[in-house]
Simulated assay, not measured.
Amino acid sequence: MTEPPAGLEDELTFPLAWGTSTVRDFPAWRRAARAVVEERLLVDRQEGTPYAPEYGPGLRGDDGVTREVVTLSLTRHERVRGVLLSPHGPGPFPAVLLLHDHGSRFDIGKEKLVRPWYDETRLESASAWARRCYGGRFVGDELARRGCVVLCLDAPGWGDRGPLAYAEQQALACHYFHLGSSLAGLMAREDVRAAGFLAGLDRVDARRVAALGFSMGGFRAWQTAALSDDVAAAASVCWMTGLKEMLVPGGNALRGQSAYYMLHPGLARHLDIPDVASIAAPRPMLFLHGALDPLFTAEGVRVAHDRLRAVWRSCGAEERLRLTTWPDTGHVFTERMQDEVFAWLESVL
């Protein structure tokens, strides 16, 4: 037996969804829905943990960007190494929390999005990944050249925090569950803390902080916007669907392994995936989808987009939500797609 009884899926009615919930005041609904999500993370907020940042030597580039390695405490258990890019000048600047993808490629994390000037041994892998998924462009470097402070950190298991082997994902998630914790919850909490750190920097305009990611990074972007008031806008590329439409035979969500980074136990008893993203309303949000993306069914994307559109419309903020499907792309974040996102970020920040 590899599948649970069909009746379990039929019982998913998402009773806490906006419009279904008995809570009719939207700010009150946001608080209630966020509280339910946070409870399912199984990881506390880490609010009393100092970031205690340590900076490595900076590199002042000829392209108008200063690059730094930064190490900080996102939780009380571990120090995390990341990269911080800043435009030359006094600021304060808009900022982007850049969230890397999964891709079953663990030797690089932050290096998928920021050229690793500090480690030539990773440059070949990073450049190959940029060509595969990002049109050959390092998204973080491009954002910084366009005037944004950029923070990018390794998620648990990637880069300096790994590398994991593919089959070790499930073992790691299982270990966390045995300890009464959660791998997905840890990643969510760390991303929220990273947003808070970025917003608190003197060089950053705290009113103009966005989250951006592709694939699993796209999931992380809208999730961070839902859970953090430090994020003013978010852009998610190639990660949005309805839950039931995602649970198809052979789909990644049912294989274990990678799915555990995005699996919060019991949450589906209350909220569908777009319902969680809707906690970010009425802030500006952009969702890009490739019509040829094999990981998300067209029906799942349609269901999610319809749900998101209804929520922003009910808030009188439909113009703040952009839902775009690129007809000729799959699971990638091409230069043309990036240019759309960059222009959108400039308009909302």
Rank of each mutant, 00 (worst) to 15 (best):
A233N: 02
H264C: 02
C148D: 09
A95N: 07
G48P: 03
V341Q: 12
A343E: 15
E318C: 02
E3I: 10
V70M: 05
V231A: 08
D306L: 01
R302H: 07
G61W: 05
R336V: 12
E190P: 04
L59M: 04
Q169M: 15
V83E: 14
K112Q: 14
R67H: 11
G103W: 08
R193K: 05
G58P: 08
R322N: 04
T224F: 05
V65N: 06
L308T: 05
R255V: 00
R208H: 13
F14T: 10
G109Y: 09
A310I: 01
S236A: 15
E190C: 10
V301Y: 02
G48N: 13
S228F: 07
P4V: 12
S278Y: 08
V311N: 05
V150E: 06
A171W: 10
R24F: 00
G162N: 01
G19L: 08
A259N: 10
D205Q: 09
P94Q: 07
P50L: 12
V69D: 11
G159N: 10
V341K: 03
A226Q: 09
L321T: 01
L271G: 05
T329N: 02
L288A: 03
F197K: 09
M240S: 04
D10F: 05
L42F: 10
T2W: 00
R132T: 12
Q169P: 00
S181M: 09
V301L: 05
L99P: 03
Q338P: 04
G256P: 09
E111N: 13
H178R: 15
W326M: 01
W344D: 01
